[in-house]
Amino acid sequence: MLFGRSDLADFSYFLVTAKHRSFRRAALELGISASALSHAIKGLESRLGVRLLNRTNRSVTLTAAGEQLQSAISSPFEEIGQAVEDLNRFRDGPSGRIRLNVPTDAATLLLAPVLPAFVDRYPDIEVDVAVSNQMIDVIDGGFDAGIRYGGTVPEDMITQRLSADLRWVVAGSPTYLDRFGEPEHPDDLHQHRCLRFRLGDERMYRWEFERGGEEILITAPGNLVLDESGFILSLMVGGAGLMYAPQAVVAPLVAQGKARLVLEDWMTPGPGFHIYYSSRRHVPVGLRLLIELIREMRPLGL
């Protein structure tokens, strides 16, 4: 059986769909609509004369034929992708596309200062950034890499440090502190309104403090539970409660007089941002260049 260019494209579509087990997620990675992707796969199945995917309203699974095809063609397509990536060294300038999954703070503090310089330096590289605090499998999600705080990076990944350790602080608005007073010891937080942060794995973040060898871990009290730092910042400025965050997050508001730090002698260092990617996946040239530029510009120190 001879295959045309459309067949090869549909085979690549099939592999992405098989990886995600979802037309929606696969379409997002491919940059096409889910309906167009489904139509392409149906056309491939028709030409091959076998069903490759079982479809329901909630899931997509591989048939036995689909599993066999995925196993047979995955390596050749990976080799083709690698060969195309290797051609970058023959171009006048590098090109390609990289996809990143990053938390809000990393997007604001780490990428925002660097990406304007990156697109100026490498105009033919497309950078697709998904900002989310959810702890997802970046490989299953179709991302080339993820950025997380050092202590939350999956152990089976290759990691590179992108920032110095971060100093964690407690901040409140002048309005709130004038009304409720300043805590003098971490235990005083139990009598305060705190803006609680829900981690990407649904756990509540506990506030860590250290002074003179004494370490204290506080389950912060409060009626507001949030998972996005920009929203927490807005509520803190509005006087809704105290927040716990890297100092760099609240520093601009402190400089503007919209926030004050408390418990400063208890401030605690924590792991900085790290980028991580699978040891099974070749690092795209664009990703390598972005890592190099972040480490060159050092927006959070290094």
Rank of each mutant, 00 (worst) to 15 (best):
Met1Lys: 09
Leu2Tyr: 10
Leu2Ala: 09
Gly4Asn: 14
Asp10Trp: 03
Tyr13Val: 00
Phe14Ser: 10
Leu15Asn: 05
Lys19His: 15
Ser22Lys: 06
Glu29Ser: 15
Leu30Met: 09
Leu30Gly: 08
Ser46Gln: 14
Leu48His: 14
Arg55Pro: 00
Ala64Val: 09
Ala64Thr: 13
Ala64Asn: 11
Leu69Val: 04
Ser71Ile: 01
Ser74Asn: 03
Glu78Ala: 15
Glu78Cys: 02
Glu78Thr: 12
Glu79Thr: 10
Ile80Cys: 10
Ile80Ala: 15
Gly81Phe: 11
Ala83Trp: 00
Ala83Asp: 00
Leu87Ile: 05
Asn88Glu: 05
Phe90Tyr: 13
Arg91Val: 00
Asp92His: 08
Asp92Val: 13
Pro94Leu: 11
Gly96Lys: 09
Asn101Pro: 00
Ala106Val: 04
Ala106Trp: 08
Ala106Gly: 02
Pro113Gly: 03
Val114Gly: 12
Pro116Arg: 15
Ala117Gln: 15
Ala117Asn: 13
Val119Gly: 00
Val119Trp: 04
Val119Arg: 13
Val119Tyr: 06
Arg121Gly: 07
Ile125Gly: 08
Val127Glu: 07
Val127Asn: 04
Ser132Cys: 01
Asn133Pro: 01
Met135Pro: 00
Ile136Val: 14
Ile136Asn: 11
Asp137Glu: 08
Asp140Val: 11
Asp144Thr: 03
Asp144Leu: 05
Arg148Gly: 03
Gly150Tyr: 03
Thr152Ala: 15
Asp156Cys: 03
Met157Trp: 12
Thr159Asp: 09
Gln160Pro: 01
Arg161Cys: 02
Leu162Thr: 07
Leu162Trp: 04
Leu162Asp: 11
Ala171Val: 12
Ala171Cys: 10
Pro174Asn: 07
Thr175Ser: 12
Leu177Phe: 05
Leu177Ile: 09
Glu184Thr: 13
Glu184Ile: 10
His185Asp: 13
Asp188Leu: 13
Gln191Asp: 15
His192Asp: 05
His192Gln: 14
His192Lys: 12
Arg198Phe: 07
Leu199Asp: 13
Glu202Thr: 13
Arg203Val: 06
Met204Ile: 12
Tyr205His: 06
Tyr205Met: 12
Trp207Leu: 01
Trp207Gln: 01
Phe209Lys: 04
Leu217Lys: 11
Ile218Met: 09
Pro221Leu: 12
Pro221Thr: 07
Val225Trp: 14
Gly230Lys: 05
Ile232Tyr: 02
Leu233Arg: 12
Val237Asn: 10
Gly238Ser: 08
Gln247Val: 06
Ala248Lys: 08
Pro252Glu: 11
Ala259Met: 10
Arg260Cys: 06
Arg260Tyr: 02
Leu261Asn: 05
Leu261Ser: 03
Val262Glu: 02
Trp266Tyr: 10
Trp266Lys: 01
Pro269Cys: 02
Pro269Phe: 03
Gly270Glu: 14
Pro271Trp: 02
Gly272Trp: 14
Gly272Asn: 11
Tyr277Phe: 11
Ser279Asn: 13
Ser279Ile: 05
Arg280Phe: 02
Arg281Ser: 14
His282Phe: 11
His282Ala: 15
Leu287Arg: 04
Leu287Pro: 02
Arg288Asn: 05
Ile291Phe: 00
Leu293Cys: 01
Ile294Pro: 01
Arg295Ser: 09
Pro299Tyr: 06
Leu300Tyr: 01
Leu300Arg: 02
